[in-house]
Design a protein around this nucleic acid. Sequence first.
DNA 1: CGTGAGTTTGAAGGGAATCAAGACTAGTGG
DNA 2: CCACTAGTCTTGATTCCCTTCAAACTCACG
Lengths: 214, 214
Amino acid sequence: MFSPLRPSDTPIQTAAPFGFTGPCLRHARDEEVFGEGEAAEHVYQVISGAVRTLRTLRDGRRQIDEFHFAGDYFGIEAGDLHRVSAEAMTDTTVRMVRRAALSQLAAKQVDVARILFRLTVEGLQRSQDHVLMLGRKTARERVVGLLIDLVERTGADGELDIPMTRQDMADYLGLTIETVSRTLTQLQADGIIAIPTTRHIVLRDGAALRRLAN
Amino acid sequence: MFSPLRPSDTPIQTAAPFGFTGPCLRHARDEEVFGEGEAAEHVYQVISGAVRTLRTLRDGRRQIDEFHFAGDYFGIEAGDLHRVSAEAMTDTTVRMVRRAALSQLAAKQVDVARILFRLTVEGLQRSQDHVLMLGRKTARERVVGLLIDLVERTGADGELDIPMTRQDMADYLGLTIETVSRTLTQLQADGIIAIPTTRHIVLRDGAALRRLAN
DNA sequence: CGTGAGTTTGAAGGGAATCAAGACTAGTGG
DNA sequence: CCACTAGTCTTGATTCCCTTCAAACTCACG
């Protein structure tokens, strides 16, 4: 899955929050934004669409690190290389901000540095939540946790339009696709959620859901 | 993480790197340094000994987020409250740096801000490794991964003096104490490690270990 | 309609958890 | 110096949640 940059992907300059600027790039579904091991010369922000960052073991086992939605930043690294790869989950637009420029800006403007720092610490805390989930929660608790997280980040009124496949959910939750599917079916049978279509989930009983999340 | 690690009994003391200063406090084994939910007014550095940061679910399930050794920082938060608790694993000395002071310092000195940022990003990357391990690795791979991590951070020449209990290892690896014990026994039977005493492990075959780690 | 990727469902198996003793170890006090 | 003790660790037997293997189903799209 390489990313051929089509001529139609004309970069658009737009005003970014906090003065972060850079060209915007479109990526088709499943296209790679950057790959594990590549030079980390940019930081990215999702303008529209959704991105997954992930790591892969040599034998193909895949772990999704994080889902990124409109407004979210990704691709921040300590070293020179990307340690995860990033792929568009749907047709997606991302802004690229040159890392060198960003670090210069942060050196001059304290508020920029502060914002970057806060974004990173928040990422760390999300990762810590992820660790707790993968280390100590049951399949049901994990699936419920993801649903709650998604509705808080992207959901309108308990309605979820899910951009990821069941496989993505499984690879984020440290489960198999079958277990994710079965768990969702069970939650529907319990009347806690409804699944009108595979990519659309309605949270019918938020309180019960939160009780199951732990 | 970052720290060039000395043996745990060598105090770094007086000259704190980068001018981070603050009083040093001693904590006995299993004593709490700070608790989940408490106000996060300090950032901490391990001077000697070892600290675990962890989260606990209401029903008692425990997940250790990270082990911190001499030189390592912990307790950095985005919000006002600590989201993990921290406990001394052995008799430990930690330096407390006032958060407000640190943030003022970072505002004035770019290099301080940069170092803080790098520490945080490295913490994030360690957490991402942890996620991959918990989400997609087998019990054996997890135990081996921990051993390798420990020897790289604290080990002298393939010799490990382990400050944590089997329960700590289990709670870090998302396993039970029995599984950790069985796995270590098996690794010893395979001639890959030796366990002269419970708290002392010798890595006899580093290459084989790395092969098993994935 | 066909076609295939994605999803669901079923049956069987396995890796780690749980339950249950026992063995070790360090610390304590006689 | 050595029994005593509590905490920790190891080992064994069994169970169970999730995985694996397999097949059928759904639905968007040519």
